[in-house]
Nucleic acid binder design. Structure first.
Lengths: 313, 313
DNA sequence: TAAAACATGACAAGTAATGGCATGATTAAA
DNA sequence: TTTAATCATGCCATTACTTGTCATGTTTTA
């Protein structure tokens, strides 16, 4: 086996093991101790952060986390990674912030100037408009890791009614419109609620959870309708256009030959309050046929506005 | 110089040059032709897609695009790349689709099983809620590349009033809420308009543009207010909460000691129609003090809704 | 038909890697 | 205090690999 290959094997081995003696490597790879010492010198020259402790019970220790074997990327592939990073640029808080910076740095520095220009242009010509948030979510990474590791959390949370302590079982985190959300099972209220990660004031304590629980993907899938109710809407041509631009409705809209359309589907009653605000906007382009509750809600909201500004012209 | 180093130099050289003869390499690196042939065998073994044409005018040809020198990533860094890719998962159309797939594949295959589990978990525990679109934007990559390369476009576009031909100078593309937008200078209407990339039906022809034009970043920055108008709103405590959840208002809201707040800023008159729909939702939690136009708009919309459902209870 | 290219083999000369041994330094346990 | 385990380094003969030269083919095109 060539020296380069063997060096890489040892590099993988030691970054995984972290602490080892020369003798161990010699046994593992069937080479002499003298050669091991020489190899370790080579690895140091290659920049691996490694240090030796002298004496009995001594040995080598590697400081980096586990390394992947060297990967050859094409220029286009490198550019695509920068493209993906660009999509994260509009979040204030991110897990893996440090790693993303270091990957970007490693890649950029090994690009040739021509490709560097292309990457710079990506930053200038493409954007992902998640409005840049002033709201920080300092516990994002913690919360994500506790979700992954099946741990329960005691947190201080700033809710509508003030600061509260919560005992929750996190399901996962997701980003929507620049904010991070945490669906979690609330042990006190005995149901799944939605928390905003930026409103978590502190993590008080954590505990390993015994039982298996659903993850985010499963939750999205199982997110079934609890109080089914029929939503039936008639849309003008313009109403069809507008509805298709609303994520919630897109896919539900049925367009007819003359350009008008309708929505006829089953939704959960709990979603009504959210939907109400959408129909306020559509005005006469969307006529609600069902449910009654939605019409009542719309009228109430409209009356509230008229009352508020009745004495103004 | 060691063999490994020289092989890498040659690898870089040939992937950049694409077509070459053994003699050229021998001259470039001051080695014998015999050695060059041996080296090329080695590169083939390493998986470089290279083929030889026999005979006079023959030579070697490399099929890959330019390669970066090998890069060593830590496991955490690899995970961060998958995290970034996850954020792109909710877009139907993406430029660099193929490259992203191949990067993911290269990385995933060189991860150890422990790290593979971590990556799988990221897919299960984190999501970026850009609602998955049914709308495809087949010309996204084309449009992006023409923006970068300073080219004008003749396109067929599906606008409000039917199918139209447009002659435009693209500025860049950006994603918002799962859709791709293209701000561009319209040569016919002589101003910058916003197009939706999914509504581009075809690209008819392109032409190199002579003059320099702004890029997306510059456009965002220069996007100044054309018809300034004062927006002055008084908010209840609940109004403050709700406003902070709306990207547009976040950052403009001033919170007072008692929890209530206000917005007092200058906006463009053109933004009013968009803002109207927001205030319909807030109801009495947000009281508009200025401008009058906004109040009038609100009332009109509210009356329209009441009229529509007047005969229903 | 000759020239320019790849393909491959053999061999000697040169270069690099390896293992063994020796020596020394440092540290912890016996 | 001694001993064993560990890193650190130097020297040298041996082994393994790399290189250049020469030779011989093949394929293609001017």
């Amino acid at each position: 086996m060539s020296k380069a290959k063997r060096l890489l094997d040892i590099l993988m081995f030691v970054t995984a093991k972290k602490k080892f003696t020369a003798q161990e490597i010699a046994d593992e790879f069937h080479i002499s101790i003298r050669t091991v010492h020489r190899y370790i010198l080579d690895l140091c020259d290659m920049g691996l952060p490694i240090y030796a402790e002298q004496g009995r019970n001594g040995g080598y220790t590697v400081l980096t986390s586990r390394l992947l074997p060297p990967i050859l990327f094409t220029e286009e592939e490198a550019v695509s990674i920068f493209f993906a990073f660009q999509s994260l640029n509009y979040y204030r808080s991110l897990p893996f912030d440090a790693e993303i910076t270091s990957v970007a740095h490693k890649l950029y520095s090994s690009l040739q100037s021509e490709a560097k220009i292309k990457v710079d242009k990506i930053h200038s010509y493409i954007a992902f408009w998640n409005p840049k948030r002033t709201i920080d979510a300092p516990f994002l990474k913690d919360v994500l890791e506790h979700s992954i590791e099946n741990r329960n959390l005691h947190i201080q949370y700033e809710s509508k009614s003030g600061m509260r302590k919560k005992h929750i079982r996190p399901i996962g985190v997701y980003a929507h419109d620049g904010l991070w959300y945490l669906p979690a099972y609330d042990y006190h209220k005995k149901k799944i609620l939605m928390y905003r990660v930026d409103r978590i004031l502190s993590i008080l304590s954590t505990e390993k959870s015994e039982d298996e629980f659903m993850n985010l993907k499963e939750w999205f899938n199982s997110h079934e309708v609890k109080n089914p109710i029929r939503l039936h809407i008639r849309l003008t041509t313009e109403g069809v256009r507008q509805c298709k631009s609303v994520p919630y409705f897109d896919g539900l809209v049925v367009t007819q030959e003359d350009g008008t359309g309708y929505i006829d589907t089953i939704i959960d009653k709990g979603e009504l309050s959210f939907i109400t605000s959408l129909f306020l906007r559509f005005g006469s382009h969307a006529r609600i046929l069902e449910p009654k509750e939605l019409i009542v809600g719309l009228r109430k909201q409209a009356e509230e506005i008229l009352t508020m500004y009745q004495d103004e012209n």
